[in-house]
Structures are given as C-alpha cells and as structure tokens.
Design a protein around this nucleic acid. Structure first.
Lengths: 225, 225
DNA sequence: TCAAAAGTGTTAAGTTTACACCCATGA
DNA sequence: TCATGGGTGTAAACTTAACACTTTTGA
C-alpha cells in the first residue's frame, strides 16, 4: 500500500542502555566488547535494534532482561541520538535508556556470556560512537532525579545500612555529604524505615538495616534529600 | 551492500515541535490543522519527517524555520515517542522538541499559510495521536529549566519590563509570585540589566525596560529564581 | 585493649516567605 | 483629581551547614 508516508526515508532504530549498579561505594556501568562489525571488540554500551512490532520502551526492556536475567527493572528514557554519522556502520538513530539495578540480582553467567563488564563511572575507557556522551546525559538525568524521587533504592539490596545509602548518594552526586545532616534528613522521611536486622559485614558493632516502604512513599511522595 | 545491520527493520522517523510563545500574559503553543491523511484536519503539533542525510536536531530546526521564518531559535529535545500504534497511518517513531520564541519575530504570513494557530496552554483542544502527551512532557521540561537557566528571555522581546518577566514565570510555573520577592531576586542577578528605555504601553507612569546580558551571564551562570 | 565503623544534637548563617503603602502619570 | 500599574523594605519562619565526641564489639 502506498500512503503519504511512503515517500519518506526509513531508518534503523536502536536502543542503547546505560545500566547502573552500585558496589563497594562505587557507581558502575555495564559495558561490553562489541560483538559484531564494524568496530567489533571496542567497548560499548549494551544495545540492540528495535523490532518491527515493538514499542521502543519494550525494546529497551527486552535488552535489559536478556542481559541481566532481571525483570521489573527501573528504567527511564534519556533521549534520542540521531547525528547522521554517529554510527560508522550505517545511519542508525538510537534511543538511550538508563536503568538502575541491584547488582546482587544480576545473573553473572549472562554477563559473562555477553562479555560484559562493570566499569567504575569515574574511570571509563574510550567508548564506541557517542556512547560516552550518552552516559554523561544519563548521569545528568540520574543526578537530578535522585534527590527528588526515591530511586536510589533500586541500586541497593532490599535492606541496606545508612552508610550504604549515603555512599550511594555521594557516588551519584559526586560530593561528600555530612553524616549527621544526612542521617537527620533521612530520619525525617516516613518511607525509609528501620528493620530489626543488623549488618555486621562492615563493622564489629554492626549497622542497623533499613528498608524502603513503597506504601508509605505513596502516601507522602514529596521530599528533598 | 549487505551489512550486519541489514537484517533489522527500518522505521519512519519524524520530529514534532512544541513551539511556545508568550503573549498577553499567556503561554501559548503553535498548533496546525493536519494537512494530510490520515486524520487530515485534526489539531496537531508542527512536525515532519527526518530526511536521509539530516541530523534529527537539524530536522527540527528546518521545520521550525520553515514555519516561523526565524533562525537561531532556542530548542531542546524532549524525547522519543515510539509506541507501535501511536500513529494510525504507519509505524512512525517521533522525536519531540520544544522551542521558545519571541512572538514579535514570527512571520505571520507563514503561520497563516500553514493554517497554524497559537493556542493558550491551559485551553488546548484534543490533539492528534500522542501530541497532548508530548506537550505535557515539554512543559515539564520547560518548568524545570526555567528556574535555573536564563531561557525565559527567548520568549520576550530584547527589552522587557519586570512585570512581563514575572507574568512569564507565573504562566510557565502556573502559580502566583510575590512582586516584591520576585523583583528582589531579579535585582540580584547580574545578567539582567536595566536600560534607559521606558515602556508606557501598559501604564501612564511607564515601566523600566530591562535586557538580558549574555556576557554577564557567561561570567556568572549560576542562579535560582 | 584498641581499631574501626556506627551513631548522635546544637548553633549560627543563610534563605524564603509574608506582607502594604507611596509614586508618577495621562485621561 | 483619580484610577492604574510601577516601584519599594523589613521581620519572622524555616532551612541548611558546620562541627566532634561516645558507643560497641571482635580480633
């Protein structure tokens, strides 16, 4: 069938995922050696082409699930990257997404299969095409989100210590936070609640474990950390 | 030539522009009657297809310039919209951009040719496809930007009164601001400077005209209004 | 017993908000 | 002379930032 649209060109459309995790006080991003030509073997983000009958959001979700074995991942669109020559293989318009995940839930075998590798955000190697730019844009978005939406928890296990939480904020925002001020503000948030649990993995004394209460957040979703 | 990419599908890619202006204390957006099938005649944003050798940003710029006759328009990407059935004509992935412009500079003839029409943001008709959603996303982005970047001036003539500036902030943020507090904060911004000019169009006494000093802004680009 | 991380309050500085009257002018 | 929009300052409330010592416990 010929429609008005048919006279216009078509393009390959890809999604690229900036997958963040948090481990040992460091914010990390998942990179892989590109598995096909051109520029096979270079460090790149996880990506793939959008399928014919697939929403772009679903394409991103598919790639994330394939690579990590996790469902229900927190994911947001970063934006579209569409310079003519951004991809040296052919014209490809790519939509970048960032995702936050708890590294404990990742299927390490899948990571290994995909020659994937967690790299510290402050120590990235040179990347393929405009992928460095995509990561910077994702980070910028993450930084503005983290202080107003309770998304940091997506990067932590269900129970976490306040020290972990603070290190997470410091890693994302890239500055030091005063411990007493941080704890005071957290203690005023009704949706962060203390559990019975104690984590002794980092100190002899042990640190109290907290959890995020989704329901309490729904009741009172405004905050500023 | 066959590449690894060739096995993947291609898509129409469009850009849609949310063009804002400010007139008589109201924030407005440019709409048109869709000039082709399907759904010809319905209210829609200004849009068009991306060309084969054109950056997506350039496509947005092209459409904006065609429709307004203005160059150097302030423009930012809002994001990609790519649900499978968002366009009832065929699968089209669309990248939304918003633009800010001084309505005095618009070529009204071009607007008329394109059956374009400025509609108050708080009184929008039902729109084609996901265009309402695009406008809401653009507004959200504009709201977060306006308080930290000096982009409001893009919507005003080169010289403007403080009353105009305040009404602009009120229209975008959708709440009333205290006049004395607003003026106090503005007077602390080194890049908003008083000119000799006086505008008598709104009062007998006349209001001082101010201008935005790009250079002073470069020297001290941090503020919060 | 000591090293290492956890936990805990107060004060000063800065920012934000609320609020009401006089001024200049042209009609 | 009066109606209209332009222009101006202060005090109270709130928020943020700076700062140091005690506790617990396993090695």
């Amino acid at each position: 069938m010929t429609t008005y649209y048919s006279q216009y060109p078509k393009f390959h459309v890809a999604v690229d995922c900036i997958i963040f995790s948090f481990e040992n006080g460091k914010l990390k991003v998942l990179l892989q050696r590109r598995p096909f030509e051109p520029r096979q073997g270079e460090w790149s983000l996880m990506g793939g082409f959008v399928k014919r009958d697939e929403d772009i959001d679903d394409a991103a979700k598919r790639i994330l699930e394939q690579l990590t074995g996790i469902h229900n991942i927190y994911m947001r669109q970063v934006g579209a990257f569409g310079s003519v020559n951004r991809d040296s293989g052919d014209r490809v318009i790519s939509i970048a997404y960032f995702a936050l995940l708890d590294i404990d839930r990742v299927n390490k075998d899948l990571n290994h299969e995909n020659s994937a590798h967690w790299e510290d955000i402050s120590d990235l190697p040179p990347l393929l095409f405009d992928h460095t730019e995509m990561i910077q844009a994702a980070l910028k978005k993450l930084r503005t989100l983290i202080s107003r939406r309770p998304i940091g928890f997506q990067l932590l296990p269900p129970n976490f210590t306040l020290t972990q939480l603070q290190q997470l904020y410091e890693a994302i925002l890239d500055y030091k936070i005063d411990k007493r001020n941080f704890r005071k503000r957290v203690s005023e948030l009704p949706f962060i609640e203390k559990t019975e649990g104690i984590d002794k993995s980092n100190s002899k004394r042990g640190a109290a474990l907290y959890r995020f209460n989704e329901y309490a957040y729904q009741l009172e979703p405004n905050f500023k950390l």
